[in-house]
């Protein structure tokens, strides 16, 4: 369960100038829900996701995940929290092009220094789940856009997180690939994961997978 209480996030541009990216946000997201965050460019969607992922800290207010106050965590504990709970899917995939599919997918596991067998089991699980086992040792830069997307999703899922965050996941995809992505979302939702997507792609509403829709306008929920 994710809860945002009275969240305000300000960015200090310089001494006299601050930008208020989010104002008094209150959100509750239940376990297993799929939530869409809508809003025009600059409205604060990405900021909201980074707060939930403990990538940044609110100026005031609290973020609570599973009754744990994420917003007050020191950096290292925030990282541990992400490692164990969050799978991030970025807009531009954010893969390392000159590494192989395998090396990209295991990136989140590296700091854990796992036994090689455990690591391989986890790897095999996700590459089968997202159908890229035949490309395991291919360099990412030699993959098609759709395959890259699947690698990014596999990487987000390798540590079996409970929460998936996606920032504009379909912005770079054509319609066919977007549809494929939605199929994957369905599968993830079926597995019981909580999914939060920041997007303004109307495609998501053609399927009834969305539990909740949050509209942000200039930093506030409208």
């Amino acid at each position: 369960m994710i809860e945002l209480k009275n969240i305000t996030k300000k960015y200090e541009i310089n001494k006299n100038n601050t930008i208020t990216a989010l104002k008094n946000i209150n959100i509750k997201i239940g376990e297993g829900e799929l939530v869409i965050i809508k809003g025009s460019s600059g409205s604060g969607k990405s900021t909201l996701l980074s707060l939930i992922a403990a990538l940044s800290k609110p100026t005031s207010g609290e973020v609570i995940v599973d009754s744990k106050r994420i917003s007050k965590l020191p950096d290292n504990f925030a990282s541990d929290f992400r490692q164990n709970n969050i799978g991030f899917i970025f807009q531009k995939y954010n893969l390392i092009n000159s590494l192989s599919v395998r090396d990209n997918i295991i990136l989140p596991l590296i700091p854990m220094n796992l036994n090689i067998d455990v690591l391989n089991t986890k790897l095999q699980n996700v590459i089968k789940m997202f159908h890229i086992e035949h490309k395991e040792n291919v360099l990412v830069k030699n993959l098609s856009g759709g395959e890259q997307q699947r690698v990014a999703i596999a990487r987000a899922n390798i540590n079996s997180p409970k929460i998936i965050l996606a920032d504009e996941p379909t912005a770079n995809l054509d319609e066919k690939l977007s549809l494929a992505f939605i199929e994957i979302l369905k599968e993830l939702k079926f597995q019981g994961k909580t999914i939060i997507i920041a997007t303004h792609d109307p495609l998501f509403f053609n399927f009834n997978i969305v539990d909740k829709e949050i509209k942000i306008y200039q930093g506030s929920i409208s």
Binding site: A53, L55, N76, S79, R82, Q83, F90, L107, R155
Partner: peptide
């Protein structure tokens, strides 16, 4: 990216 996916 590394930090976003859980590196300290």
């Amino acid at each position: 990216v590394l930090k976003a996916i859980g590196w300290r």
